[in-house]
Amino acid sequence: MAVQFHRPHALIDTPTHYCPGCPHGIVHRLVAESIDELGVEGKTVGIAPVGCSVTAYNYFNCDMIQAPHGRAPAVATGVKRALPDSLVFSYQGDGDLIAIGTAEAVHSATRGENITIIFINNAIYGMTGGQMAPTSLPGQVTQTTPYGRDVHYSGYPIRVCELLSTLDGVALAQRVTIDTVPHVREAKKAIKKAFEYQLAGKGFTIVEVVSSCPTNWGLSPVDALQWLRDNMLPYYPLGVYKDIGEEAAK
């Protein structure tokens, strides 16, 4: 009987350290499947962030570089400028991308840097144990907003796809999620499309994956996904924010 479902070659056969119910495993798989399908593992360089996915270098089979907190887009830029024919992606969480790494994210986007950012938005700092993220929702209780995020005191969340879609260098900015099978399929399509755009030299691509963090949200994996649907998606609507489509490469 033919094997219908197998581990993508671009994922290393090893247990991950992620918590039960954490969507990182799903998104890793979608990235790896896309690399496999495009047949580019040999020329792919991935950039691991600081945060829960810091050790992503242990899970992807392609060459990997671990970057300082927030600097993954700058490191990716250096790699891409040195190896223009490679596929370069960074894999970053919300704190990494849009708090400490805001400048690197925005400027790599506006340069039209031919890289792909896989952005995991789960509205919290996971690695350090559940502090307020730049994408934490108004009123959201975290370790550092114990009375709920007061937007008059701590400011408002940042909607990354909306923000970056205003920049001319961006070829694709799409927000997806992984709460249901159809959504996972859509997420996969977006990631693969981003890689295809990069390989065609179209410019900067970002796929924002609205994710859950059962551990730090204090919910079961199933309840966390319901919380995501009830709270995250209204604030972070799914959709394509920018797609230059079939426009010619620059």
Binding site: V45, A67, R71, A74, V75, A76, G78, K80, A82, L83
Partner: peptide
């Protein structure tokens, strides 16, 4: 965009 970004671009290129 900054010294911080510049040195990390160096890191990326040099790592490659």
């Amino acid at each position: 965009e900054s010294e911080v970004a510049a040195v990390n671009m160096v890191q990326g290129a040099a790592a490659a």
